[in-house]
Design a protein around this nucleic acid. Structure first.
Lengths: 234, 234
DNA sequence: CCACTAAATGAATGGCATTCATTTTTATTA
DNA sequence: TAATAAAAATGAATGCCATTCATTTAGTGG
């Protein structure tokens, strides 16, 4: 009850006795703001308002809005499931990791172009995720010089799939051009019908595509390992 | 020589005798601007300057900046290679399509979050691409109700991989946290060494990851089609 | 005790997409 | 053909947004 003290009372200028901000508080406020208003609502002004502080005060703790996004990203990376890599068979561990990774970032699609290109240096949680995944791959017998490529390939699929989750249900509506695209229009109808037969509602379509692609990747990657190379994963 | 007529001469207000703009001219100017200055440089003001016109004039031809991005996207979709689907074996056609798709959008990464979520309705070139791909899948014997899911899965991988192309060479530099991430750090070093042995310079790392993932997807999807199994794994 | 640094305020600044009133020209229609 | 509507331009706002700067106040290290 005493938390949002006096919103109306203006604080006078000058350093306060106890610091009002900190990267942790900024991170939590940013996450809450995104949850409530989406990334469009994540502005420095809105963030400051939420923290009951002037916008310029934020710049004592972050260098830019980009910095705020990085704080959020690091927090999210800590929510990705990697525990399976220590214990489970390789395909199960990858499956659990991939689904949780996709689901975490499906709700944070605007971060994806940022993450995909962001150096991991000084991003501890992100690095810990990669460390766990790498040990799991090594444990399964992957040759060391291919592990990072395999992770990057899986990650690319995951990022693209996370974006796909945000697509509207009618994204493939061919509209007035249906007559000129008969094969595609038919395939889209069949897919929708199949999804409904399954009793699954709208959003499940991206789930089906993700499952299909992930299983194909798992099978294909396993097969690539199998022949004469360092042994099949498991 | 006569192209940029009189930059300094102010046109007086009012409709000009011949229209100065049009969606085609706007599209070309936007593409040129992006080529020269990147997406940061693609502002309505810069676009107008390039077309020797007032910014507000653009709004007689597009509803918003988002519209400009859609014009660019449609143009780019026309550059994706789909001719193989009419003639080549399925894996070859998919390979050619996937590589060209990725390469086209690697240079237009900021468009990817837009495309991934954009309805295809009234986007003729985009639809024609999907039509060609779909016919190729059908020709290869894919069950109609799985074609769209397979395309979406491949596309997700392609979009994610296109983002990856823009990553800096040192994206996986573990910096001061190397000691806490020994497996990952070692794998990154091995990868870099392998890339150098190949004589391939920097950007080739994302190519290797893309090739690995694409071949795995192709193999996995083909296997899922095999006689006995009724399609994708559940 | 004093200088320095940290952390806040509040008032700019400049860039951006977009809107609106106005003007001029072309196209339509009665 | 005359009147009117619609199209396409200008130029001046508008409002939002990230960021910077001068200023104020409060702890901190020598």
């Amino acid at each position: 009850m005493a938390e949002p003290q006096d919103r109306a009372v203006r604080r006078r200028a000058g350093r306060p006795p106890r610091a009002l901000l900190g990267t942790d508080k900024i991170t939590r406020a940013a996450l809450k703001l995104v949850e409530l208003e989406g990334y469009r609502g994540l502005t420095m002004a809105a963030l400051a308002r939420r923290l009951n502080v002037a916008p310029s005060a934020l710049y004592n703790h972050v260098r830019s809005k980009q910095d705020v996004l990085l704080l959020v990203e690091e927090d999210l990376m800590g929510r990705v499931e990697v525990s399976g890599f220590a214990t489970d068979p390789w395909p199960d561990a990858v499956r659990a990791w991939a689904w949780s990774y996709r689901n975490v970032f499906a709700r944070h699609a605007p971060l994806i172009p940022v993450i995909a290109v962001l150096p991991v240096t000084d991003a501890p949680r992100t690095l810990m995720m990669y460390e766990a995944v790498t040990t799991g791959f090594a444990r399964a017998g992957w040759p060391e010089d291919q592990i990072v490529d395999a992770i990057v390939a899986l990650e690319s699929f995951i990022f693209g799939s996370a974006l796909d989750v945000g697509a509207p249900a009618d994204i493939f509506d061919t509209g007035t051009l249906a007559a000129q695209t008969p094969s595609f229009t038919a395939a889209v109808r069949r897919r929708a019908a199949a999804a409904q037969d399954n009793g699954a509602p709208g959003a499940a379509e991206s789930d089906r595509a993700f499952a299909l692609g992930l299983e194909a990747l798992l099978a294909g990657l396993s097969a690539g390992l199998a022949p004469g190379s360092a042994g099949a994963p498991g």
